[in-house]
Design a protein around this nucleic acid. Structure first.
Lengths: 150, 150
DNA sequence: AAAATATATATTGTGCACAATTAAATTTGA
DNA sequence: TCAAATTTAATTGTGCACAATATATATTTT
């Protein structure tokens, strides 16, 4: 016999709160590491995407991170002010703003490479447990993705 | 042979991003349901705690939700403005502010009881999968809890 | 009791998230 | 072809999170 979920209003039984609390704890662990690099956590995510593939547009960054221009535009302006990247309209389509790393931004990658190592050490999870949880979260997020009303 | 974690800077391999993305997706699912109740997601969490046990102080709410007064004070003022709760200094210790539900706040619980039911339906997870993931997240958060430097 | 210390909340300032709107460039189609 | 529709960013406004500081009250120490 398969048990059903019995929905309650008890905080400690909510998956959403476990997720919310764990996510905030996780960024709190990153904070001091990233502060040493002069980055916030969302800024670190943007830099990670650009280290993988430079020259993306704001839209492409937003698709990757699931963030809109209301979040990205000011964040990217701060990274520009910090000298880590440049923003300019594309000649081919002036609606698009292309983001390119400066040398400083590119070079920051070397120091940032320590961050995942520190985290792996801090987490004390086996690679299997790590991958298991990551996949569960990815499929949860996929399950929660807005139904693409066709 | 037990495989080790190979830390990279690739976005799709980060547990932190899976967590961050899933958490934001989750609150996005709650948003329209809670909007119907006139609540934001953090406000809903506060109300859940108070529906469980009324008359807590700001500090006690903060311990439960892991939020500080910088977050809670303005949030509680908004809930007060909305007529859902009252805030007053305790006679026994005037440093403390006790939060008490109004009748309106108490009565909102009935309508809010639908929310977890809607979510359970939306999630399409078995009770086992739900509980499994919730416990994994709780132990992750515990693992990430600030080491209480004694 | 006065001074030092600790505790609880509020305030200030920065940086996300996200909805809603605006503005400009591009594409589509009658 | 040119007006309407679409796309891309930016802007505006609200509400968290969280660090740092301030303020008021309570407790402890001398």
């Amino acid at each position: 016999m398969k048990s059903d979920i019995q929905p309650t209003l008890l905080l400690d039984e909510q998956l959403c709160f476990a997720l919310y609390a764990a996510s905030r704890r996780m960024t709190a662990i990153y904070r001091p590491l990233l502060e040493a690099l002069g980055l916030t956590y969302p800024q670190y995510l943007v830099m990670m995407v650009l280290w993988e593939r430079d020259g993306l547009t704001v839209r492409e960054l937003g698709e990757r991170l699931q963030l809109d221009s209301g979040t990205l535009t000011p964040l990217l302006k701060r990274l520009e002010q910090a000298g880590l990247l440049g923003r300019r309209r594309r000649q081919s389509d002036e609606r698009e703003v292309e983001i390119t790393l400066t040398d400083t931004g590119h070079n920051l990658r070397t120091r940032a490479a320590e961050v995942p190592r520190c985290l792996a050490e801090r987490l004390c999870l086996s690679a299997d447990a790590f991958e298991h949880l990551r996949h569960e979260l990815k499929s949860l997020a996929a399950q929660l993705a807005a139904p693409t009303d066709e």
